[in-house]
Design a binder for these strands. Structure first.
Lengths: 214, 214
DNA sequence: CTGGTTGGAGAGTGGCACTATCCAACTATT
DNA sequence: AATAGTTGGATAGTGCCACTCTCCAACCAG
């Protein structure tokens, strides 16, 4: 298939596909002549994954490239590939190191993770970006004087763990090659985030409507 | 307090505070003379809330203004104010209307919400942005061939409802004026999103490490 | 008196995700 | 075979956004 057909079947403009090719989010097509290239079904699948990550998952282009490169780097162990791919997903700024709320939040998170028995992926001698995200969010809550008790966090963590088990059951049932599985974990991690957030907002609207009806 | 002190106590540069004042994210300070203004503790609190929404919650500046304006518009009922504030929170692009995956996703979401008995805030004769967010995410999963069974969605919804109940318990315990309560709902809705996502990612790393260790 | 500070306004910056233009090589139509 | 349209690679440009810089008159502290 030619660029135009790839564009029509994916709903992505040719200009944007060219941009993705340039940014190495898509592998180049097979050269047919000096100025013509041919694309296959694999390109279409990959393009749709890229679009889903960028549009639905709000992953920056540069990040999407890193994630996908790591996912298909067969020189790494499956576990490293999976960890590194999720590692590269977007996350807020690292928490400021030099204020009391951050330190307190860090203590609280450490205590929480220890209580859960999570090793929080210190695999590479570094803490996960998700850890920083968590600390920053809790520090913000503290700074605003909103409650952030360990019990409440534990509830969130317990529910998160339940989701993770269900998601990975899905991946195992889904099967496929190691690379496909890693892609599936990335896709499910990213694409179920809006699902979860949307459901939570709907649930909150529902519940607050129930409680605060005038 | 003067601009500089507000800046020092909040950790936000004076240039950025001026920008927020211009964008009406902060109410103007009390004029002391033609070119001097005085700010109070309320400004500091508001500034911290704005910063939390923008930096941690990734809410665009224009959206933050709408959300906060709605939250403090005392001409509206408490329920409307709360609904409208959460309504204005950022969400992905509306799903494309004209493709089969979107239609299928919409049917699935409608069935899910009916089964849950959620009225998904059709208060204003329109569906919530969170509804569109949910449809778009599920359509993406379908387009990529990933599973998105109703059972799996129901699990997410059940957990989301559990979170909503816990969050609103916190708000009720927190108390305060109606405006403060609405601010609290907005702040907790936004600031617990990164907490939940971070915990989910940590849980996924943990669980996939457990399953896929080579 | 004077050197530094304050705050309002407008223009400028940098990053990002495209998007438009150009052009030579190709392909399809008559 | 002429010609009109298409393709794909490279480069530059666009639009948006969240700041950030510059200027300047008014102000204030030593």
């Amino acid at each position: 298939m030619r660029l135009k057909e790839l564009s029509e079947r994916s709903g992505v403009s040719t200009a944007t596909i060219k941009y993705y090719l340039r940014e190495r989010l898509l592998p180049p097509g097979e050269r047919v002549s000096a100025t013509q290239a041919e694309y296959g079904e694999e390109h279409l699948r990959r393009l749709r994954l890229v679009r889903a990550l960028i549009q639905v998952g709000r992953v920056p282009v540069a990040t999407a490239r890193e994630v996908l490169e790591t996912a298909e780097d067969e020189s790494l162990s499956q576990n490293t590939r999976m960890g590194a791919a999720v590692w590269a997903l977007p996350h807020g700024p690292e928490p400021a190191e030099d204020d009391p709320e951050t330190e307190e939040a860090r203590r609280q998170v450490d205590a929480l993770l220890e209580r859960l028995g999570w090793t929080y992926g210190q695999e590479l001698g570094d803490t996960s970006p998700a850890y920083g995200m968590l600390v920053a969010a809790i520090a913000s809550l503290a700074r605003l004087g909103y409650p952030h008790e360990t019990d409440h966090l534990l509830l969130h963590a317990r529910l998160a763990a339940e989701l993770a088990v269900a998601d990975l059951d899905l991946v195992e049932k889904y099967g496929g090659s190691p690379t496909e599985r890693i892609e599936a974990v990335v896709a499910l991690t990213v694409l179920y985030e809006p699902v979860l957030l949307a459901l939570r907002r709907l649930a909150e609207t529902e519940e607050s409507g129930r409680r605060f009806t005038d």
